Measured scan of single mutants.
Amino acid sequence: NNDALSPAIRRLLAEHNLDASAIKGTGVGGRLTREDVEKHLAKA
């Protein structure tokens, strides 16, 4: 659900052409954090 993404996370996802649903969020309520996105990028 993109409504739960902060603007910074949306921008980071867009810059790397990532789909938020492909990344498991570890923030409050399962929200994506910058660390989640960076860890996903490091794996790729």
Rank of each mutant, 00 (worst) to 15 (best):
S6T: 12
P7T: 10
I9Q: 03
A44K: 13
K43V: 10
K39A: 14
G30T: 03
I9Y: 04
G30L: 02
K43N: 14
L41P: 00
S6Y: 05
L13R: 00
I9M: 06
L13P: 00
N1F: 09
P7Q: 12
R34D: 08
G30M: 03
K43E: 13
N17C: 10
V37N: 00
A20K: 05
A4V: 12
A8G: 07
A44V: 15
L13A: 01
R11N: 15
S21E: 09
T33P: 00
R10L: 15
V28E: 14
R31W: 05
I23G: 01
E35L: 10
L5E: 06
A44D: 11
R10A: 11
A22H: 10
N2G: 12
L12P: 02
G30D: 05
G27H: 02
E35R: 11
G27T: 02
I9R: 01
R10N: 10
L32Q: 01
L13I: 07
R11D: 15
R34M: 15
L32T: 04
L5P: 06
D19N: 11
L41K: 01
E38V: 11
R10I: 15
L32A: 03
K39P: 04
A4H: 14
V37W: 02
E35Y: 10
N17A: 08
N2E: 14
R34I: 15
P7F: 05
T33K: 04
N1C: 05
S21N: 12
K39T: 10
K39M: 12
E38T: 08
E15H: 12
A14T: 08
A22C: 04
K24P: 09
D19F: 06
H16M: 06
A42C: 06
N2R: 09
N17S: 07
E38K: 08
V28K: 12
L41G: 01
L12A: 06
G30N: 05
V37I: 14
K39G: 09
R34G: 05
D3T: 12
L32C: 00
D36H: 01
P7C: 09
L41E: 01
H16Y: 12
K24L: 12
A4L: 13
L18K: 01
L32P: 05
E15D: 09
